[in-house]
Amino acid sequence: MALQTLRSWFTAPMLFSFLIFGTMPLWIDAVGLYQYLGLEVMIWIIFALAVNMLLGYTGLPSFGHGAFLGIGAYAFGLTQFNVAANLWLSLFGAVAVTAALGAVVALLISHRRGIYFALMTIACAQIFYFIASKWTDVTGGEDGLLNIKRLPVDLGLAEISIQSNFSLYYLCFAAYVVIVVLLWRLVHSPFGKVLSAIKQNDSRVAFLGYNVWLYKFLIFTLSCGISGLAGALFAMAQEGAYINIMSLQWSGIAILIVLIGGGFISFWGPVLGVVFYFLARDILGAYTETWLLWFGLIFVVMVMFKPEGLAGIWRDGRVLLGRKPAPQPDSSANPSIAGGD
């Protein structure tokens, strides 16, 4: 039974991802890449997982989520400047402020769905963008909030500096481990099952007696909180908070990443998508300035021929290779139903 419990918390793909990302700084230079890229990948994975809680699991297209990444970054900087230069406090500030603003937006949009939901998120994101660009006393406007520090990790007994990209990466990796484990639990809990049911058929969920509005509200707020955490880490990586990540373009790229990775059919879709995006940026980018055009074309082809994204290709590949079908994470819950008997 203890093994059973352990297995429902940790799965093979999860441990595999810990192995890969946990060792990445040790070999990333050897394969011709660089440490800062690993940092970006890790932060964007956290952000993309947050976006996918809405898009892939609840069917809520939030097309303005970049705003919350930006709010997290500003809130992190403002907390360390104005409250206390403590990492935990500043991270908490970033998450709390972003989740609170996310909750306000969620209040306004949780009764919407589909295209109306998407339009409302865009409108709210534009409002935040406008405020951030005009409220220069607080945000620094177009210049951004400069000199945000990589505060040391205070563990009580010891203090670890995260000045280097290498050490900051491991802070992000730790955040990744926590987020992945918690979100994995979440999507397999009754709460997560209701979210996915809302995506499939929200009116039926209501007729079963669930409060659909409240579920949407909570998951939107949670997703914003996690985006705020990613924003805080990004502020440390960049050593500043800049308004450009709040633009609709970055929100769009986040959606693109989730879709290309296959967020609709797999928990790991956003992870694949982020890795693919940043590799494409650096590898294609080395050959051509117009790499985003090529990336866009890849996206179009993907939507036409494999709308399930990279996770879908992975799944098909496994079936072709004659492995037992569908070991993709979403349905790995099924064998455990049998195991529970």
Binding site: Q4, T5, S8, R185, L186, H188, S189, P190, F191, G192, K193, V194, L208, G209, Y210, L218, A333, N334, S336, I337, G340
Partner: peptide
């Protein structure tokens, strides 16, 4: 439904 907001409980187990 009564446990619909539980996040740690595993439904498949």
């Amino acid at each position: 439904r009564a446990r619909g907001f539980s996040v740690l409980h595993d439904l498949s187990n």
